[in-house]
Design a protein around this nucleic acid. Structure first.
Lengths: 196, 196
DNA sequence: CATGGAATTGAACATCGTTCAAGAAAAAAA
DNA sequence: TTTTTTTCTTGAACGATGTTCAATTCCATG
């Protein structure tokens, strides 16, 4: 039941995003009553959260595979590859990727711990090449910087795929991401050198 | 009438964000009938758009003032100041700033031209210091890079102020923004030097 | 078979944005 | 002024939505 609901919701979100999700249709495709949903979940948001967790897992797997392929290579190139992976995933899973950020957290209860743990693991992927570029950074500033770099790439991809800015062809967007992360890498190296 | 509606909507959005906006309350505070709204606007989204335009104007004014203050100084510092301005505005006008990006454009009709023009003017503020750092860049790549840098800073601020990431104190966030944009500046300079 | 508790149901509720037939107001014509 | 035509305004009503809960069904236990 529970897993049926999540699966059905996942299919809808993957196809049409959060806006396409709706309790009555969900009940029908799963073949249960409307009220039954609320025996399993406190509200629809909980289902969305479940789907988002799965998306995050997919994403992590996707990015980690690329990171593994680049293991040991030039860390600056590794950063670029990570950013590219982010873009590729976002483009090829747009609706469900958007759902990750469209879904406003009810400020009552914060994010589940598992969610935060997933995030931390993602940031770790950024931290590794970052540590190679900037061995002088302590743990905490390195973690913060990884998070900041993640957010920056997110912003570039996110604003572009929303229609909030005049939309760019994906190829141009890719060039921008690569160039920009390259610049950040150069800046990081220069900063480390200056510190030496 | 029209301006009353916009003013009332602006007050609501500035206080409680888009989620607080609602046709019936709006009609009551303006003192008109529910249907009257739809004599003036085709739908509520149009009012939101109007408020967002005003927010964009406020924002531009805010950022431009800071940019003017930094005129002629070290362009790398100028970039940092712009990013700081972005953060300051977002923090001090959170709900209405969020409304800018929460409001999903109905894919039917794209953004109004005026909106795009406002954006272009914003990016110009970034382009100026960028041009000083990278005189080698042609117009088009410079414009693209300005847009990319804007998006990056947006991402850092946006993800932080959403509750989607474990939230940081604003002071730490400010440090991150400054450090990060500083790194980008260094990277830009190094790139320009290498090209010379 | 009877009985008590648990699980399930779907009609009903509250709240949205939006519409539109009916009425009011204004303008034009007589 | 009175009548007719046009325009504008209105708020009840519609359709969707998430969520609830009294009534019903189900099932394990005595």
């Amino acid at each position: 039941m529970r897993s049926d609901l999540i699966a059905a919701a996942e299919k809808v979100i993957a196809a049409k995003g959060i806006a396409g999700l709706n309790a009555r249709d969900l009940a029908e495709t799963v073949g249960c009553s409307l009220g039954a949903i609320y025996n399993v979940f406190p509200h629809l948001d909980a289902i969305i959260f479940e789907v988002n967790s799965r998306t995050l897992a997919l994403f992590e797997q996707f990015v980690a595979r690329r990171a593994k392929a680049r293991e040991g290579v030039d860390p600056a190139a590794g950063l670029i590859a990570l950013a590219e992976a982010y873009l590729d995933f976002a483009v090829s899973h747009q609706p469900r990727w958007r759902a990750l950020f469209d879904h406003r957290v009810s400020s009552a209860d914060g994010l589940p711990d598992s969610y935060l743990a997933d995030q931390a693991r993602l940031f770790l992927l950024v931290e590794r090449p970052l540590a190679a570029l900037r061995p002088d950074l302590e743990d905490k500033p390195r973690m913060l910087m990884a998070r900041t770099m993640f957010s920056a790439v997110h912003g570039i991809v996110s604003l572009s795929l929303d229609e909030k800015l005049k939309s760019l062809p994906v190829s141009v967007l890719g060039d921008q991401v690569r160039t920009f992360v390259g610049i950040v890498g150069t800046g990081l190296i220069a900063g480390a050198a200056r510190r030496r």
